[in-house]
Design a protein around this nucleic acid. Structure first.
Lengths: 206, 206
DNA sequence: TTTCTTCTCCACGAAAAAGGGGATTTTTCA
DNA sequence: TGAAAAATCCCCTTTTTCGTGGAGAAGAAA
């Protein structure tokens, strides 16, 4: 029996996976968690063989969680899980040590196959995920990776604060805020604050 | 028995909902579809009382589908379904005739309650959805009324264009654009472009 | 240990926006 | 037809942002 742990903040998805796996011979769902730290705690008490990790979690993102899980549970195999929208995360997830990547439109068979493959130490990629990786880097503008400070500054900019006001609030120099602002503009590939706020909101950073 | 139909492109979510509802007395899942047109076809052959509609579908978005469903199946009650990220869709979904809105982190009880409420012709909103709607309504009773020119300028500002670029595009003087910009700032009650774009997007103007 | 990233800070100049006025011509519509 | 509203245009000053560059310290990663 392959002990499988599910990490996703949507009970519907957890239920769906449980349901899909309940009639399999070799896979057993031994637990689930709605966020990263809860998952680590649960896995300490009750180790598993394979973890299904959603990319979007309330506390940590999937990549960070993947790294942390691999530190603490070296034997645990990790499968990334996401919707088609977060394709750009695939390579980063693999880099972080994941054993594979599934889209949420996977069916039960694929899910079972992926878990078995991961358990045996192989890599499993869903068809779409494999194609995304195989395709050269002509990708559409994928989401920039912002540092926590940058996200903080971005949020305050969107609130309507000036560099000086932000500097005062964060206890740093206005020049530093300006640097963050410039880095944000560069990362988003836009030329002014207006476009940055729009992009930031569309991408869910704000 | 309330006949319920599920429209979501992720089998995992569909399975999860089925699973959550399988032990209820009054709710029965009579079908599911992965996209909007498949849903319409299936509902023609096999009518349902309530439809759970995901906001993100491969062909139509939830709002469009909601309108189409209400045209063809006037008796069908529709519940919107999404993750926390697409909050801004709530009001548009309601406008399109939905009987309620659920987040995917809902549990089985909430799901059942929502379906029953919709079936009885009541409106059901998850706590977060209700708060999202209540907030702008209470805090800002009067959303600024923008003229069509102002909306046009606002959209271009959000695209990252400067006054001069907008002026060129609209064949008017940069000074005029600046006037519109100032009027927009005044109407929104904000002090710079960043905050204006943010509120503009939150209010659905952009 | 070295390298990389992040966060911090800085200089200088140009461009753009914000704040404060005002004014004229079209549209809209009661 | 006449008032309101919208759209257009203008001036001046100050503030803020943008573009281009560089650089040091701390900590994590390799």
């Amino acid at each position: 029996m392959i002990k499988t742990f599910i990490i996703d903040d949507h009970p519907m998805v957890i239920e769906g996976i449980r349901h899909m796996l309940q009639n399999t011979d070799n896979v057993q769902v031994t637990g689930s968690a709605a966020d990263g730290y809860a998952a680590i705690d649960a896995l300490k008490a009750n180790p598993a063989d394979v973890a299904l990790v959603d990319i979007n979690l309330p506390d940590l993102d999937g990549i960070e969680l993947c790294k942390k899980l691999r530190e603490r549970f070296p034997k645990l195999k990790i499968l990334g899980l996401s919707t088609f929208k977060e394709r750009s995360y695939i390579t980063r997830m693999i880099d972080a040590g994941a054993s594979g990547y599934l889209l949420k439109n996977a069916n039960g068979e694929e899910l079972e196959e992926a878990i078995k493959a991961a358990y045996k130490g192989r890599m499993y990629l869903s068809m779409e995920a494999a194609q995304t990786i195989a395709r050269p880097a002509v990708q559409q503008p994928d989401l920039p990776l912002l540092t926590s400070r940058e996200k903080e500054v971005l949020a305050l900019i969107a609130e309507g604060m000036t560099n000086n006001e932000i500097a005062e609030k964060l206890f740093i120099s206005p020049l530093t805020v300006d640097s963050h602002r410039k880095n944000l503009l560069a990362k988003f590939g836009v030329k002014n604050t207006a476009a940055m706020v729009k992009y930031g909101m569309e991408s869910g950073f704000i």
